[in-house]
Amino acid sequence: MSEVIDILISASFWAAVIRIATPLILATMGELICERAGVLNLGIEGIMVIGAFAGWMAVYQGLPLWGGVAVAMGAGMLFGLLHSTLTVPFGLSQHVVGLGITLLATASASFAYRLMLPEVTSPPKIEPFQPLDIPVLSDLPFLGQAIFSQTALTWAAFAMAGAVALVLYRTPLGLAVRAAGENPAAVEAQGLSVTGLRMGAVMVGSGLMAVGGAFLTLSAFSSFFFEMVNGRGWVCIALVVFGAWKPGKAVLGAILFAAFDALQIRLQQTPIGAVLPYQLFLAAPYILSILALVLMSRRAEVPAALMVPYNKGER
């Protein structure tokens, strides 16, 4: 037990928690926007992969880091456009299209990687985002290292989560998006286009997912690996449910999840880790996600029109 306490009071642990939470927050916000508008986006896992690849490749080709973020976002929005075209006006199965998008985006990243780097055995590195040095705050004892040692992309992610909450709950646009996921016929009665709102939400959401993926290559690691997203997208879908489709709760869920993830990495190096197989630690985040889904299952308030296609003139 003392090992756990030692970990919990170390500043580097909390720095890791925030770092691990960042891509989850971005992608969870992306998925949340899609689902609040009524569209389940199972393309998330592949869109994170394409974001990780596109951002990294753009920077490797000479673009500045923020340029890489923009390229990742653009790539994500492109797949979001494809997803929403098929699922919104055509009303195709969101399960099948989403999985198809994940397969297509993942394969596109692998194909483009091999095409652009045919001979390399290990992926080249880029110069990633550096921790932002904030005057005074970064020099604080403990907090300086635990919180104020993050990169600009992490700060941007938290700001983005705040902005998503603000837009969803405090603007007419947010109200319209939420209504598209609850009662699309009412939205149409107001003279607004359900198709436009849903497609827009899926594109913006997919852009955020891709930036979440790009955080992995542009900030957390400095290279692209095929398996690097490793189920994070599916975890984010669980986090949306865990957060009851509310931005604030979803961010808390992401941080909680990241804390367990950071804890299991560190526990592997303690005497506890010597006794138990390391695979059990690696599986803990996935097991935890399932438990979170089970715990929240009774309480979750699913958007009423989630996964219900809307076809004008049909009642």
Partner: peptide, 29 residues
């Protein structure tokens, strides 16, 4: 979990894939 508690089976079955691969890795090592 789906029929009793309404837990979406897409996410649970997907996550079980990752858990199973780690279990296989444990067995093989």
């Amino acid at each position: 979990l789906k029929t009793r508690l309404g837990v979406d089976e897409v996410v649970t079955t997907l996550l079980l894939n990752f858990i199973m691969l780690l279990f296989v890795s444990y067995l093989l090592e």
